[in-house]
């Protein structure tokens, strides 16, 4: 069931994705509109191993230093709704976009992304559109697991579009990044509760970052109907409908950690207990959240003593 995509044939520029340039709300609407069609007529090259338990699919990406200053992708394989495509890279960095075939996760689905960056390789992964959790035919929660591994001297940018929890959906998403001591990471996650003016589904999201085997961040956020009480109250979200995390791991933070700073009303930059920094943010909507995180990243980029270059 694995389709190894050839980089040439599958090259997709981000702008050709129908939703990539739309604001998140419009993107969500477009996604919602295409969802049914995609599920009813799965792409021929991506057979969906649908069972009574929902879809099980894994995307695998391996990035390897090619010995000539670039990064090769010896494994780039998708399944069902998960389709990774190589896009034009920049310098030593390979770029991958998770595209189109994503219609889920629906109830009962079990999706996994497994991305591995080997020693000295540089990889950037994005997604062409927001991911929407939707209610499915199969009862029970959907699961979406992201496993990111970065070896020494490797660098990964994991910058997918928003995860939107649609009314009636139930999703448990976990992201785990395992980094070698000198690996580098830029990770952004954004959760949006409901499409425009919609009540959210149930969403539980756990994010863990390990550096050299030591967990420096482990955070779970549970919200929506059925979540433990108080999730929308003054201690947790207070009516905010979008929340995001931006994690930066750089070996040099061990010597010179970032200084904690409040970034406006709903966001703060903090040094973690390890060579890592976190921007945690809540906002009324996805657009304002993205603006907050973009500004934070730009500022960190400027402040960081690391090599020049755009962190995004």
């Amino acid at each position: 069931m694995t389709t190894a995509a050839s980089p040439q044939a599958a090259a997709v520029a981000p702008a050709t994705s129908p939703t990539a340039t739309l604001p998140p709300e419009a993107a969500s609407a477009a996604r919602a509109a295409t969802t049914t069609a995609v599920r009813a007529a799965p792409a021929a090259d991506a057979p969906q191993p649908t069972t009574s338990a929902g879809v099980r699919a894994t995307a695998r990406i391996v990035a390897r230093h090619d010995g000539r200053g670039g990064t090769a992708l010896p494994v780039l394989a998708g399944e069902g709704p998960l389709a990774p495509r190589r896009t034009r890279g920049s310098g030593a960095e390979a770029r991958v976009l998770l595209v189109g075939a994503m219609s889920g996760p629906l109830g009962g689905d079990r999706l996994t992304v497994d991305a591995r960056v080997e020693a000295g390789a540089r990889l950037r992964i994005g997604s062409a559109a927001a991911t929407i959790a939707l209610p499915g035919q199969v009862p029970g929660p959907a699961r979406y697991d992201v496993r990111l591994t970065v070896a020494d001297g490797g660098e990964l940018h994991w910058l997918p579009e928003q995860l939107i929890s649609a009314h009636g959906s139930d999703l448990y998403v976990t992201t785990r990044a395992d980094l070698a001591p000198t690996a580098r990471l830029v990770l952004r996650e954004e959760q949006v509760l409901g499409r425009a003016a919609e009540q959210p589904g149930r969403l539980t999201s756990r994010l863990a970052v390990r550096i050299g085997g030591r967990t420096v961040l482990d955070q779970e956020l549970a919200c929506g109907p059925g979540a433990p009480g108080g999730w929308d109250g003054p201690a947790v979200l207070a009516g905010h409908r979008a929340m995001g995390q931006l994690v930066l791991v750089r070996p040099e933070f061990a010597r010179a950690p970032v200084a904690a700073r409040v970034l406006g009303e709903g966001a703060a930059l903090v040094p973690l207990a390890g060579p890592a920094a976190l921007v945690s943010a809540v906002a009324p909507d996805a657009l304002r959240l993205r603006r907050l995180l973009d500004e934070a990243l730009t500022e960190l980029d400027r402040a960081c003593a690391g090599p020049p270059g755009d962190l995004r």
């Binding site: 482990d218 955070q219 201690a235 929340m243 903090v270 945690s280 809540v282």
Partner: peptide, 22 residues
């Protein structure tokens, strides 16, 4: 191991704590 422990978080408690400390 300790990964079995819950990790439930409250974003506003964390963010507001930084503002409060300042």
């Amino acid at each position: 191991g300790v990964d079995a422990l819950p990790a439930c978080s409250a974003p506003l408690l964390e963010i507001a704590a930084e503002a409060h400390a300042a």
